[in-house]
Amino acid sequence: MMNRVNRMFILIISVVLCLSFPELTFGQGQIKRQNQISKPNDRSVRQTNDIVELSRKFNWDSYGICQDTIVDLGLSVKWAAWNIGAHSPEQEGTLFGWGDPTGKETSIYSSKYPVKDPPMSICGDRRYDMAMANWGWPWRLPSQKELEELSKNCKWESFRYKNVSGVKLTGPNGNTLFIPVTSRRTANWNKDTQSYGSQLIIKPADMRGRYCSGELNSNGGQWEPWDCRPYILYFSLEDVNPCGYVDGTGLRSSGLPVRAVYAR
């Protein structure tokens, strides 16, 4: 009789413990804890949720322009929110000759950018890629194809952002990107000597934007067969619909801004 009472008592205690502590199971004379996996604290959960939320909803300002460093427009790559050398979307940043990550080369000769027989693509080449050299991997220069995707698959409109003229791009997913019209550095034509002299900074008076890619046009140059030209993204605010287009007749010696892509 006493053994039966003891068994009933143990059974009742076991049921109460199982209901109160479902992670505990009873084996032969010992208690085992199942799934001993440490749970993240509340702070870790909040951080994870913040990252997930940022991937879905971007930080918009009062102008409707995305303020996050990485902007997902719904294209094959994500884009930087501002230019290399800048700290906000409206700043022009550094003007780079093609293949010169320092931005200090001002020679008018294409052979200086970066070599006489250059690689046809410097996208992801840390020696010459102006974006990767300054911001590190996975930032890099956009390819011709990625610039054309930006041009053809986004809605373009003239936009003035914080007193700076440029274009507002709206991607297929509704997210936005501001690209300013900037200065450019180009060779100065000397009428007296009928030749190009030192380079000058030209302010954006013509309201045309120019941004370089990391790829060259394999058709070659106009003067020397090795003088291949980089593909450039152009747009003009003088057009009623300032849709960008990509052209392979730029100059490697021209100093232009860089808008990087996030290749991950």
Rank of each mutant, 00 (worst) to 15 (best):
M1K: 06
M1Q: 06
M2R: 09
R4Y: 14
V5W: 10
V5N: 13
N6Q: 15
I13F: 10
V16W: 12
S20T: 14
P22W: 08
E23C: 10
L24H: 06
F26T: 03
K32M: 06
K32C: 04
Q34R: 09
Q34L: 10
P40T: 05
R46T: 04
N49R: 14
D50S: 11
D50Y: 14
V52N: 04
E53D: 07
N59M: 10
D61C: 07
D61Y: 07
S62T: 14
I65G: 09
V71Y: 02
D72V: 01
G74T: 00
L75I: 11
S76P: 04
K78L: 14
A81H: 08
E92W: 14
E92R: 15
G93H: 12
T94V: 04
L95A: 15
G103W: 07
S110R: 01
S110Q: 02
S111L: 13
P114I: 00
K116Y: 10
D117F: 13
S121G: 07
I122T: 04
C123P: 01
G124M: 04
R126L: 15
R126D: 09
M132T: 11
A133G: 11
W135E: 08
G136R: 02
R140A: 14
L150T: 00
S151F: 01
C154R: 11
S158P: 04
S158G: 07
F159D: 08
R160L: 08
N163M: 06
N163R: 12
V164N: 05
S165N: 14
V167Q: 00
V167R: 03
V167G: 03
L169A: 06
T170G: 10
G171P: 03
T176Q: 13
T176M: 13
L177K: 01
F178W: 08
T182F: 05
S183F: 10
R184Y: 05
T186M: 10
T193K: 12
Q194S: 09
Y196Q: 01
K203Q: 09
K203Y: 07
P204M: 00
A205T: 06
A205V: 07
D206H: 11
R208C: 13
G209P: 01
Y211V: 10
C212W: 08
G214Q: 02
L216S: 02
N217C: 07
N217G: 09
N217S: 07
G221T: 03
E224I: 14
W226T: 10
D227N: 04
D227A: 07
I232T: 11
L233F: 13
Y234L: 03
S236C: 13
S236R: 07
E238G: 10
E238N: 13
E238K: 15
D239G: 01
V240I: 01
N241K: 06
P242W: 11
G244E: 02
G244H: 04
D247F: 15
G250R: 12
L251N: 10
S254D: 15
G255S: 04
G255H: 05
G255V: 04
G255A: 03
P257N: 13
A263P: 08
R264F: 03
